[in-house]
Design a protein around this nucleic acid. Structure first.
Length: 654
RNA sequence: GCCGGCGUGGCGCAGCCCGGGAGCGCAAGCGACUUGUAAUCGCUAGGUCGUGGGUUCGAAUCCCACCGCCGGCUCCA
């Protein structure tokens, strides 16, 4: 009789061939036998370590979602007989399934599908596993072309184990699947269908486009509710919505897709970011340069952009002599020309050229997305020209600057990738190998943990990317550092060495924020529009209680402006509650209410953005504290209570 | 670029299915109130219904094309 060992260490003998589920608690969704996930119906044949997998376990949740995807496909096939189904895997937070249907699905159809799924769940249909030969499987799915293609092309994956194909069947509906699955549809129920989308068969845009249904499934109703709440939270933070609400920027139709204008409030916000990074770069030995937006075609031929990047460039314009000019999609060729403007010595190196350079990329129409993907944007771009000996140190300096800049915005603990040579590339293998090796050496010396992303490099060189998590845990790629041996070659860049010989330098391309537009979008979502004081378009709003207090309010605003603070007076003839509400909606950091009492005492009643309210704060103390908060680029508001004179009234919660 | 959805005063939306008065709320302007911590009351003005074409006696509404936006896919980083 086989002996099973449970996680508790308990050992038990069971009858050979009994399902593993019989030795496990009833809430298990599947089992782990010697580390491998199996169905609860899996027969025990030999001694094994046996472990229940619960819905609360990540693997269990995966299985639950996978089973829910099956039932969704089953429901779709019930409602549209003859539907062809492709694949339906679990994904982060949910699942999807792709279909080829004669009709286009509508959001109302999702409700019908969901209703049918609930019927299937209520029917408690058991999931039954079968193992078929390749021929049997092909016959079973004779009218399902996507499944047949999987069967015909399968190696030991996606439903196939060598020449055996596993199939899961419940109530006549069957799908090719490795499993495992929950024992019965009765285990499903905490799910919701979310959205419809198009998706190419096998992710290939030359192949048929299918209809994809996205859904989510969880172990408990509370988990589902929490997930839906997170989706709402993400929507609340949507930078496109906040951009309009806070009057930061707009994308007028008249400009064309992916092109925007910054409004005065957005302009202040953006300028704060730009001033900060510019200042820091100058401190770190970067030299500011400025370059034009267009250049003749020859430059782009030399750089390789016309050969490898044209589809992302705006089409050429021609002058009266039929000379072609292109708007720049990158700044690098211009910086190369700055370098080449005179004969360089090894004493000039490293040369760190910095520019907030505005670039235009004709991104495919369907990929545009608010500030996060634009056609015209400004990069905090730099090209560092140096010797091979200086390269690793220079890369390390870039890493260091990256961490410092992002820390200021509240981004820490980066996820770092090393991306290697892509399919479309310039330069030979040896160059790529060497450039990649320098990046690897720098990473190793930096102590940063990183993973290698094969084939993800830029066309001219390998790169290191930094991703950061925002306030709700989403990951954003912000920084990219690229090592380039190809452009120095193509542009025949040189320097005179100590040995009085000509040498070829190497180049680092790097953008720490990426584009200011994209970074702004990320920041807006990260802070949910509630900016730290130094970035806030309007830092202080002063609310006079009645008309007779407006003059005093303007005096205070003038005093704050002399400290470099951005303050506005709301002298509209509205009630105080209405003005407070208006300031709160605009997410102003501090709202000062002034009336007779305040004028008398030389104080202000301060309301924080989060709603706390402190009365009787001496105005000068507030001004000094706010100035210090903004100047230090603090992420935290001042402690207003500390500004109160002794024995003053306390804080009241708003 | 592909699939699907959408486009109505500055913003958020109804009207479209079933063709015939262009409406609501907020914001704005004016007036009354002089206001004490998330919306005081009243009045007024504001729209070639994304653009172009078609069907029709008549189009916001039906059809076609284009532009733009949204969700994905693909792409990019």
């Amino acid at each position: 009789m086989p002996k099973v060992t449970l996680p508790s260490g308990e050992q038990r003998e069971v009858e050979a061939g009994v399902p593993v589920g019989s030795a496990l608690p009833p809430d298990a969704v599947c089992a782990r036998v010697d580390g491998r996930l199996v169905d609860l119906s899996y027969p025990l044949a030999a001694d094994a370590a046996l472990e229940p997998v619960l819905a609360s376990d990540p693997d269990g949740l995966h299985v639950l979602r996978h089973s829910t995807a099956h039932v969704m496909a089953q429901a779709v096939c019930d409602l549209w007989p003859g539907a062809r189904y492709a694949i339906g895997p679990p994904i982060e937070d949910g699942f999807y399934y792709d279909f080829d249907l004669p009709v286009s699905l509508t959001p109302e159809d999702l409700e019908r599908i969901e209703a049918r799924m609930r019927e299937i769940a209520a029917a408690a249909q058991p999931f039954v596993r079968e193992e078929l030969s390749r021929e049997q499987a092909a016959a079973a799915f004779a009218d399902q072309p996507f499944k047949r293609e999987i069967i015909e092309t399968a190696e030991a994956a996606e439903g196939a184990l060598g020449e055996t194909f596993s199939v899961y069947r419940n109530d006549g509906w069957a799908d090719l699947c490795l499993g495992p699955h929950v024992p019965s549809t009765a285990r499903l129920g905490v799910f919701k269908l979310l959205s419809l989308a198009g998706a190419y068969w096998r992710g290939d845009e030359r192949r048929p486009q299918l209809q994809r249904i996205y859904g989510t499934a969880w172990a408990t109703e509370e988990d589902l509710a929490a997930h839906l709440h997170r989706l709402e939270e993400a929507e609340r933070r949507d930078h496109r919505r906040l951009g309009r609400q806070l009057d930061l920027f707009s994308f007028p139709d008249e400009l064309g897709a992916g092109l925007l204008v910054w409004h005065p409030r957005g302009g202040i916000f953006r300028k704060q970011i730009e001033d900060f990074v510019r200042e820091l770069h100058l401190e770190r030995g970067y030299a500011p340069v400025f370059t034009p937006h267009v250049a003749r075609s020859g430059l782009w031929e030399t750089s390789g952009h016309l050969a490898k990047y044209v589809e992302n460039m705006y089409p050429a314009m021609r002058d009266e002599n039929d000379v072609r000019y292109f708007v720049k999609p990158m700044n690098c060729p211009f910086h190369v020309l700055v370098y080449k403007s005179q004969t360089r010595s090894y004493r000039d190196l490293p040369m760190r050229l910095f520019e907030l350079g505005t670039i235009y990329r004709h991104e495919r129409a369907g990929t545009l997305h608010g500030l996060l993907r634009v056609r015209g944007g400004t990069q905090d771009d730099s090209h560092i020209v140096c010797t091979r000996e200086q390269l690793v140190d220079e890369i390390l300096r870039v890493f260091d600057l990256t961490l410092e800049i992002h820390r200021t915005f509240g981004f820490t603990d980066p996820i770092v990738n090393l991306s290697t040579k892509p399919g479309q590339a310039i330069g030979d293998e040896g160059m790529w190998a060497e450039a990649t090796e320098y990046l690897r050496m720098a990473l190793d010396r930096s102590g940063l943990a990183y993973t290698v992303a094969e084939g993800e490099g830029a066309f001219y060189g390998p790169k290191v990317d930094f991703h950061f998590r925002d306030a709700i845990g989403r990951l954003w790629q912000l920084t990219t550092v690229q090592c380039d041996f190809a452009l120095p070659e193509r542009f025949e860049m040189e320097y005179m060495g100590e040995d009085n010989e000509r040498h070829r330098p190497v180049m680092i391309h790097r953008a720490i924020l990426g584009t200011i537009e994209r970074f702004s979008g990320v920041l807006i979502e990260h802070y949910a529009g509630a900016f730290p004081l130094w970035l806030a378009p309007e830092q202080v709003r002063i609310v006079p209680v009645a008309d007779r207090h407006a003059e005093h309010a303007r005096t205070l605003a003038g005093r704050l402006a002399r400290s470099g603070l951005r303050a506005e007076v709301d002298d509209s003839r509205e009630t105080v509650p209405k003005k407070i509400r208006a300031a709160q909606l605009m997410k102003v950091n501090y709202t000062l209410v002034v009336g007779d009492r305040e004028i008398e005492a030389g104080t202000v009643a301060v309301r924080e953005r989060e709603g706390r309210e402190v009365r009787g704060v001496p105005f000068e103390a507030f001004a000094a504290a706010a100035e210090a908060e903004a100047r230090s680029r603090s992420l935290e508001p001042v402690d207003l209570a500390a500004l109160l004179p002794a024995a003053a009234p306390g804080i009241s919660e708003g």
